[in-house]
Design a protein around this nucleic acid. Structure first.
Length: 481
RNA sequence: GCUCCCAUCGUCUAGCGGCCUAGGACACAGCCCUCUCAAGGCUGCGGCACGGGUUCAAAUCCCGUUGGGAGUGCCA
């Protein structure tokens, strides 16, 4: 045995990258980093009916996004399970020849019938001693020995299984192809895997895999089964039902650091009173033994809160750079998955970087997702603001609204164009109408921005400019009648 | 059904026999700040599933109950 710990992450390319998979990958990655070990990426592409090659690139991109980069010396792979077919059959042959496995020609229907007749579910070992040789349609089954299999699990301790509750499971299908349990073990052996860290759903098949390791004459790896991520119904997150695509969160403007940090607080907590910690701290603190035993709810709201914190922590320049894809219409898109529009609300040629740079600090404290940014600054780049009619009508429902706005228009025509001067002018109008600034700003805001909420108004007007402000007030006055 | 896992505020967690009248975060409510909305600050609400043990002492250890979950495929 070499002294270098070898971890692995073995996803199958059957769809978008699951947030639960991301967390499992992160665990393995962090463990590899802190032990100066290796993180092996193996693509388990043996289910021909569900695999799609494009998903493989998706996995690699997703991993890179959360910091698990193929160019890092701790990273090894990707390996493809399909390339190890010869090893799978060789190992199966070895198990057959050593008496650890046998062929069976029963169809699944026949097995079901037998089980029904016997009143016991599962395969009953019918072909154990029939001495069948390999042949088309015949599956190879593992001959589960009597006794007890004890799994040593880094997060759960010792878990023991009575072998009598484990049926003689299939290794090779009728067409000769290996089944997950078998291929997985053979590959782990071939790749010298020493530590298997995976989701709890794999715990029930761990005794089977451990028996395989032993039958193949190898020392089983150190196992660790981490709790699954669940939805609000406390059911395992599923691709069908739940919003689980890492790509989708990325497209909505969750930043990688926030995603990584949030994922790591599920089932585990950094030491100290704060959950927002940088990756180096996580790598330093993380311990498998302190991972929780119970499932964790993937709370999108809290993810958003984390993301907001990360956004606010950025310098203005960093924030501007992070926003760029959403402002230029080049945000990552996720075909087939419902996601916020990647089109900007304005014609791209109207976008003005300098203008955004001036207002960026104002929007930075007001968004929790990068995809929310365009809607917050659209009025700067649209020829005319998109009027929210409900907000408009409400703002102009007051008696004083029209005359006050007319009066503001007059003042703004000649006042010095600065935040303070504009604000004072508007306040003066408010005084003459006996309306507080909080209320008074509403018609002005809707007229110039189209909405009742948004970035600070006077700062916005300063950036918008006198001419455009006046033009929009006139348009609103016309509209209000 | 069978096998296995799990059980601290609504949620994520700290706690690993005395420091706990159980701490933090998200969410929620109120207040402050304030040109809207946020952000920020302060305060509040709210939990050891239940029942037995063990112990001078239990959220922490043991057993049971109840309740969740996962697996039970010639899917991975």
């Amino acid at each position: 045995m070499s002294g270098t710990p070898r971890y692995r992450f073995a996803p199958s390319p059957t769809g978008y990258f699951h947030v639960g998979g991301a967390r499992t990958a992160l665990y393995n990655w962090i463990l590899a980093l802190q032990s100066d070990g290796v993180f092996v990426l193996r693509i388990e592409d043996t289910d021909e009916s569900r695999n799609q090659p494009q998903w493989t690139q998706g996995i690699i991109d997703a991993l890179a996004w959360i910091g698990i980069n193929g160019s890092d010396p701790h990273f090894e792979g990707p390996y493809f399970q399909s390339a190890y077919a010869a090893a799978h059959t060789a190992a199966a042959q070895k198990l057959f020849e050593s008496g650890h496995a046998y062929y069976c020609d029963l169809t699944s229907e026949q097995i079901q019938e037998r089980a029904k007749a016997a009143g016991k579910p599962g395969y009953d070992g019918y072909s154990r001693d029939r001495g069948l040789s390999a042949g088309p349609g015949r599956v190879l089954r593992f001959k589960v020995p009597t006794g007890v299999t004890v799994v040593h699990d880094e997060v759960r301790g010792e878990v023991s299984f009575d072998n009598s509750t484990i049926e003689d499971f299939v290794l090779l299908r009728g067409n000769g192809s290996p089944v997950f349990i078998h291929a997985n073990v053979v590959d782990d052996i071939a790749m010298g895997i020493t530590n298997v860290v995976r989701a709890e759903e794999h715990l029930p098949n761990t005794p089977k895999q451990q028996m395989l390791w032993q039958a193949l004459g190898k020392t089983p790896p150190v196992w660790a089964h981490v709790p699954v991520l669940v939805n609000e119904q406390r059911k395992k997150l599923s691709k069908r039902r739940d919003k689980v695509a890492l790509e989708q969160y990325r497209a909505e403007g969750v930043v990688a650091d926030a995603m990584v940090n949030y994922l790591m607080t599920l089932g585990w907590a950094p030491t100290g009173d704060t959950e927002i910690v940088d990756f180096a701290q996580i790598v330093a603190d993380f311990r498998l033994a302190s991972v929780n035993h119970s499932s964790a709810f993937f709370d999108v709201k809290k993810l958003g809160a984390f993301n907001g914190e990360y956004l606010r922590k950025m310098s203005t320049d960093e924030f501007i750079a992070a926003c760029e894809p959403w402002l230029s219409g080049t945000a990552p898109s996720v075909p087939g998955v419902e996601v916020t529009p990647t089109m900007t609300p304005w014609p791209t040629e109207r976008f003005d970087r300098a203008v955004f740079a001036r207002v960026a600090p104002l929007v930075q404290t007001r968004v929790s997702l990068l995809s929310e940014v365009p809607a917050m600054v659209d009025f700067f780049f649209l020829a005319d603001p998109a009027i929210d009619t409900a907000a408009f009508d409400k703002a102009f429902s007051a008696e004083w609204a029209r005359p006050a706005l007319r009066s503001m228009r007059e003042q703004l025509g000649s006042v010095e164009w600065s935040v303070e001067a504009v604000k004072s002018a508007v306040e003066a109008v408010g005084a003459s109408f006996d309306v507080k600034l909080g209320k008074l700003q509403a018609p002005l805001r809707v007229a110039t921005t189209g909405r009742s909420v948004g970035p600070p108004l006077f700062e916005s007007l300063e950036v918008l400019g006198r001419d455009e402000t006046l033009r929009r007030i006139d348009a609103a006055l016309t509209r209000a009648g």
